[in-house]
Simulated scan of single mutants.
Amino acid sequence: MSEISKGLENVFIKATSLTYVDGEEGVLRYEGYDINDLVNHCSFEEVIHLMLYGDLPTKEKLAEVKNRLNQSYSVPSSVIRIMEDLPHNAEAISMMETAFGGLSCFYGVPWDKAKNKERAIEIIAKAATVTANVYRIKEGLKPRIPDPSDSYVESFLEATFSRRPSEKEIAAMNAALILYTDHEVPASTTAALVASSTLSDMYSCIVAALAALKGPLHGGAAEAAYQQFKEIEEPDNVEKWFNEKVIAGKKRLMGFGHRVYKTYDPRSKIFKNYAMKLANGENRKYLDIAIKLEELGLKEFSKRGIYPNVDFYSGIVFSSLGFPDYMFTPLFALARTLGWLAHIIEYVEEQHRLIRPRALYIGPEKRDYIPLDVRQ
Rank of each mutant, 00 (worst) to 15 (best):
93 I>F: 04
23 G>V: 03
18 L>C: 06
138 K>A: 10
28 L>D: 00
20 Y>G: 06
84 E>F: 06
288 D>Q: 15
115 K>V: 05
269 K>P: 04
368 D>R: 15
46 E>M: 06
228 Q>H: 10
67 N>P: 02
87 P>N: 02
225 A>D: 09
5 S>M: 13
55 D>C: 13
62 L>H: 02
234 E>P: 02
15 A>W: 07
361 Y>N: 08
108 G>Y: 04
183 H>E: 06
301 F>G: 01
363 G>C: 06
150 D>W: 12
215 G>Q: 07
68 R>L: 15
207 V>W: 01
97 E>V: 12
256 F>T: 06
363 G>A: 03
344 I>Y: 02
198 T>Q: 03
156 F>Y: 15
307 Y>M: 11
191 A>K: 07
95 M>E: 07
117 K>G: 00
263 T>F: 01
375 R>C: 04
71 Q>C: 13
303 K>F: 09
263 T>W: 03
309 N>D: 09
35 I>H: 08
320 S>W: 04
265 D>A: 09
55 D>N: 13
212 A>S: 14
237 N>Q: 04
348 V>D: 05
105 C>V: 10
356 R>G: 06
120 A>I: 00
148 P>R: 01
14 K>Q: 12
43 S>A: 10
315 G>T: 04
65 V>E: 02
1 M>D: 11
161 F>L: 05
250 K>H: 08
363 G>Y: 04
327 M>G: 01
208 A>K: 02
148 P>K: 07
133 N>A: 08
33 Y>E: 07
135 Y>F: 15
371 P>T: 00
314 S>A: 10
286 Y>S: 03
175 A>W: 05
215 G>N: 05
100 F>V: 05
42 C>I: 04
356 R>I: 06
277 K>P: 05
355 I>L: 13
294 E>A: 02
110 P>S: 00
45 E>F: 02
46 E>S: 11
291 I>G: 09
20 Y>T: 12
226 Y>W: 10
24 E>L: 15
105 C>L: 14
301 F>K: 12
194 V>E: 06
160 T>P: 04
293 L>T: 12
240 K>H: 14
365 E>A: 11
331 L>D: 00
228 Q>F: 09
252 R>C: 10
358 R>N: 11
88 H>S: 12
100 F>N: 01
245 K>V: 09
370 I>A: 10
186 P>I: 07
278 L>C: 11
242 F>N: 03
93 I>A: 01
96 M>R: 02
294 E>V: 06
62 L>M: 09
86 L>H: 06
247 I>F: 04
130 V>S: 10
48 I>L: 02
3 E>T: 15
209 A>Q: 09
293 L>I: 07
25 E>V: 01
301 F>T: 02
175 A>N: 09
33 Y>L: 03
330 P>D: 00
130 V>D: 08
223 E>I: 00
35 I>L: 12
236 D>K: 13
118 E>G: 14
148 P>L: 01
245 K>C: 09
